[in-house]
Design a protein around this nucleic acid. Structure first.
Lengths: 144, 144
DNA sequence: GTTGAAAGCCAGTAACT
DNA sequence: AGTTACTGGCTTTCAAC
């Protein structure tokens, strides 16, 4: 799979917006529309582009409150993170779970239906021994 | 935003594959192609579909380092966030951008190829007046 | 091999029933 | 909503590089 600069430009553009026309791509990468679309065809064929999907609005899914929660952990068993993944991975509210350096050890991206639902969630899931505490940032706006 | 059963079907299909034709959608939901495309138009217009994006194969991005960056902002013009979205939305490193309550005002989820690339990124993009500073958390492991 | 330009084709749009 | 006609983008061909 060898890609030149034009291919990478097209991929970057398509990653942001897959509905751009050949002419729009052409303007941005400096090739003709036909050349862009030929390359795009190839990028799909060789699997550089896995698929193209629609992103749905949060309020169509019903979970419209996003929260970023940082969890400092107490040092514990080495399989602790695997167990957290196991545990949080099953919960539909959990969109992402990162293990990070710095103060906090885990960062959760959650989506809940209401703040009450989040309060319940925290009450139920953040009370284990391994979790030293938690800090919540409510997302006012998901810009991207 | 009121959606009937047909709308929900179309959304579910588009979430899996946004390149289906009107005829393909029509086969699956049991309406005419034109009706499906009319609904699709509406779903985009009312924002039920936020955007449509290409998913790139992992080995094409080469971006293996994920970073969570919190940006405290100086109070500024009210269109500041729109301008940030405009600005960061164009950068392929930016996976997500949240406007949050609390200490930090913006939270960025980034993917970079190397730490040097991130240092460059920060140097180039976090030096504007509106940005008071930045705190970086390197993701050791993306658990979900 | 690649490109850009032009012709042909097909999907998306709009008007009408 | 469905059918039809129209428009515009995508695909293919071709000549030139």
């Amino acid at each position: 799979m060898d890609l030149d600069q034009f291919d990478h430009q097209i991929l970057a553009l398509m990653q942001k917006d897959a509905r751009q026309t050949g002419a729009e791509l052409a303007d941005q990468v400096g090739l003709s529309p036909a050349a862009c679309l030929r390359r795009l065809q190839r990028l799909r064929k060789i699997g550089a582009i896995t698929r193209e999907i629609a992103v749905l609005s949060d309020d169509v899914t019903g979970r419209n409150i996003t929260l970023i929660v940082t969890l400092p952990l107490n040092r514990g068993r080495p399989d602790m993170r695997a167990r957290f993944r196991e545990y949080f991975g099953k919960l539909p509210e959990v969109k992402h779970l990162y293990h990070v350096t710095g103060e906090a050890d885990l960062v959760l991206i959650l989506e809940c239906q209401t703040m009450e639902a989040y309060a319940d969630f925290a009450e139920r899931h953040f009370r284990m021994d391994e979790i030293k505490g938690y800090e919540t940032n409510v997302v006012l706006q998901t810009l991207i």
